[in-house]
Computed example of a mutant assay.
Amino acid sequence: AAAVYGRTGAPGDQETAERWDRHLDVTRRRPATRPPGHGPAALTAREAGIADLLAAGATKQQVAGRLHLSFHTVDTHVRAVYAKLGVRSRLQLARLWDAARPVSAPPDASPSAAPRSSRGAG
């Protein structure tokens, strides 16, 4: 923008644009090469349970029903899972999840994958 203002003969606007450009260079944040809390180990127990169900083929609505959560809560967890794992699709999630899962663990081993009961043990 500063160059355009300079070519069109607007030196006051050119100075303002250059000032903003310098300000943005100083305040612009560059993404970390690897964000903290990255990978399967960074997931909470709830996120891991949701990732496990999604990787097994469940939809968000099915996960919400199984875990007695709202769809929006599941959607929020899914976004966190995708960000922490660095994936953009359910297929990528399933591939990564299958590769990261220990061989000895059964598919529903996650404690958060089990439905919660609202009733006491009695």
Score class of each variant (00 low, 15 high):
A1F: 11
G6K: 15
G6E: 13
R7Y: 11
T8D: 14
T8S: 14
T8F: 11
A10H: 13
P11M: 08
G12Y: 03
E15T: 11
E15C: 08
E18W: 10
R19W: 05
R19A: 14
W20M: 12
W20D: 11
H23G: 06
L24Q: 14
D25G: 12
D25F: 07
R28Y: 12
R28A: 15
R29A: 13
R30S: 13
R30V: 14
R30F: 13
T33V: 13
R34I: 14
P36T: 13
P40K: 04
L43M: 12
L43I: 12
L43K: 07
T44V: 13
T44I: 10
E47F: 03
A48L: 11
A48M: 07
G49T: 03
I50E: 04
A51G: 15
D52L: 02
L53V: 04
L54T: 00
A56N: 01
A56V: 02
G57Q: 07
G57F: 05
G57T: 06
T59I: 12
K60E: 08
Q61F: 05
Q61V: 12
Q62R: 15
Q62S: 11
A64N: 03
G65D: 03
R66P: 00
R66N: 02
F71L: 06
F71M: 01
F71G: 06
T73K: 01
T73N: 00
T73V: 04
T76A: 09
T76G: 07
H77R: 04
R79L: 09
A80T: 12
A80N: 12
A83C: 04
A83F: 02
K84V: 05
L85A: 02
G86C: 04
G86V: 04
V87M: 03
R88F: 02
S89I: 00
S89N: 02
R90G: 06
R90I: 03
L91S: 06
R95M: 01
D98A: 14
A100P: 00
A100I: 02
R101K: 09
P102S: 07
A109I: 11
S110V: 08
P111A: 09
P111D: 07
S112T: 11
A114C: 03
A114L: 12
P115A: 10
P115W: 04
R116W: 01
R116F: 01
S117F: 04
S117T: 12
A121E: 14
